[in-house]
């Protein structure tokens, strides 16, 4: 599904990713762990098409060169990034945003756009599953939401848009244990033979609830070690320093 070969990325003349390679097949869950500044967020930004990076190397998504696609086209093709810091958008009603987003993606997929009633039914159902406060849907997008509510809102968007590849950028940071379980449930519900996940995290904690197929250690811009779920536990015990 996703093939990254020898990806290099620099921003403001600072080299962040240095020969990063990764292969994700349909249905797989990959976790990337790494210390601050190792390039985790840069990776998720580049995958979703954020501007400002100088890049070389190759990223193929379902065989297509990702660099040829704009941010919204990547979303249309089924790439979703749950933001580490979801943005507050004043004056934009959450429901209107969600409906605009869902219909943009449905349209791109050649599916019928949902009318207001169909949409509300769906969003209420999904909110209930995620224990996301329905009143928030009528508020301005993320404005005045707590950290946990913002993260849940990301997972709500993920479950509405049903992407093929979901990238979770430190979604677990700032979450209490209840919220963490809800977020994990959201991921596990979407998990099947076709959908893949790339989970970026500092800690092993989230991986207790979302069992990854592969764990990679990202240090200084590239993967220094890959393994199974046990690698996460090993990391937690030994710390990153021993992988240098």
């Amino acid at each position: 599904m996703l093939k990254i070969n020898n990806l290099n990325a620099t921003i403001d003349n600072k080299s962040i990713l240095k020969g990063f390679s990764l292969n994700i097949n349909p249905g797989e869950v990959h976790a990337i762990m790494g210390p601050n500044g190792s390039g985790k967020s840069t990776l998720s930004n580049i995958l979703s098409g954020k501007k400002g990076y100088e890049t070389s190397g190759e990223i193929l998504f379902e065989g297509k060169d990702l660099f040829e696609l704009e941010t919204e086209e990547r979303a249309h093709k089924g790439i979703f990034l749950a933001f580490q810091y979801p943005l507050e958008i004043p004056g934009v009603n959450t429901n209107i945003f969600l409906k605009t987003s869902l219909n943009a993606i449905r349209k791109a997929r050649g599916e019928k756009e949902l009318d207001a009633i169909e949409f509300l039914k769906l969003v209420k159902e999904k909110s209930k599953d995620l224990k996301f406060d329905e009143d928030k849907l009528n508020r301005q997008l993320n404005v005045g939401f707590s950290g946990g509510e913002k993260k849940k809102n990301e997972i709500l968007q993920m479950s509405l848009l049903a992407p093929k590849l979901s990238i979770l950028d430190e979604t677990d940071s700032g979450l209490d244990i209840d919220a963490l379980k809800i977020v994990a449930d959201g991921v596990n519900t979407l998990r099947d033979k076709k959908n893949s996940f790339l989970i970026i995290t500092h800690y092993q904690r989230l991986l207790d609830y979302i069992k990854p197929d592969f764990v990679h250690v990202l240090m200084n811009g590239k993967i220094v070690k890959s393994g199974g779920p046990d690698l996460a536990i090993e990391l937690e015990n030994k710390g990153y320093e021993n992988f240098n």
Binding site: S48, E70, E72, A75, L87, I89, P90, S101, L102
Partner: peptide, 26 residues
């Protein structure tokens, strides 16, 4: 903010309009 909205499938134009309307709403 534009990147956030576009990453949800909105075009640049849609994202811009949404943000401008949001700015003017109050």
């Amino acid at each position: 903010s534009i990147f956030y909205l576009m990453s949800r499938g909105l075009s640049y134009q849609q994202s811009r309009e949404l943000l401008i309307n949001g700015f003017l709403l109050d």
